[in-house]
Amino acid sequence: MECHVTAQAGQFALDIALSTAAEPNWLGIIGQSGAGKSTFLQALAGFNAAANVSGRWHSRDLSKLDNAVLVSAQTPLFPALSVAGNLELVARHNQQLDNVKTIVALCECTALMSRQTNELSGGELQRVKLARALLANPALLLLDESFSAMDRALRFGILHKLKAYLGPHVKVIMVSHDINDIIVSCDHLSIIESGHCVACGPLSEMLNPARGQQANASLPLISVLHGEIEERNMGISRISVGETSVKVVDESAIPVGQSVRLLLPASEVTLATENSTALHTNCLQATVQSVVPYSATQSAVKIVCEGQELTALLDNYDSRINTLQDGQLVWAYFSGQQTLA
């Protein structure tokens, strides 16, 4: 993927060049407020006539995209029409009337259809906007803080359904101030600062930089474990990770049997060199892969468990860190209060 966007918004100059070796399906973008994330998405959506867009994503020429659809605070619902009116108008002019029911259910808008747009709460407004954007049959979907007013369970539930609905054909760029939104849904990540892209790459590499590479200070150290929901009981899901299984508190509505991502912040992982009887819900057997400095006071210990990479943080002043050997057997403990999506 290659993407180059230049735009001028008052005094602010945007010059973002994104480039990835692989073709992302979902690209996440993070950056501080005012970094140019929204300006970038608006340029791609054709909101800024003076912006210059070039590049390609899969076989699509980004400068000739006529179906890039943005969902943001800058894409208001049409106030003269009800929720149903907004959705039907867009569906009709995009030959999507047959899909209205599916998309309304996906975005949890079924109960909102008869409402007027000024009666909606922030989260409801975001859901209707998302549904309307999907009915425009996008080739590129641009999500700019499109879930910020929804609670976590609802947000992850919709994101999960959205990923399944869009499949690999619709490309997505998602801007969010909540890194968890990006980790649960994106495969690539880009960091934007002062109108420029400062880092871009596969999510796993960005979150867990290889040996010798500096971790990006704006990213938290979070591991992503891939697993499958085996069963759910009283709000607790058992998830199989390779041969072992873990138990996690689960508010999501993801059906049993589906694959999920478990987000495990490095600070949540406790390491032990012997399988003790620590009172933690979950324990995974792993082998040490590497120990890399993370900050002045902490080191990141990378371990491999069931073929998946995990990271734990240890304090540098603990001398036992020096005794850890590559390939050494360790046990990783963590509680069941983790994010699942």
Partner: peptide, 26 residues
């Protein structure tokens, strides 16, 4: 606000629909 017009155009509404459903009601 121009956002209404940009949005209507982005959602592939033809000009007469934009006039009838977005601009004139406003």
């Amino acid at each position: 606000h121009p956002h209404y017009l940009h949005t209507a155009k982005m959602l592939n509404l033809p000009w007469h629909v934009r006039l009838q459903r977005v601009v004139l009601p406003a």
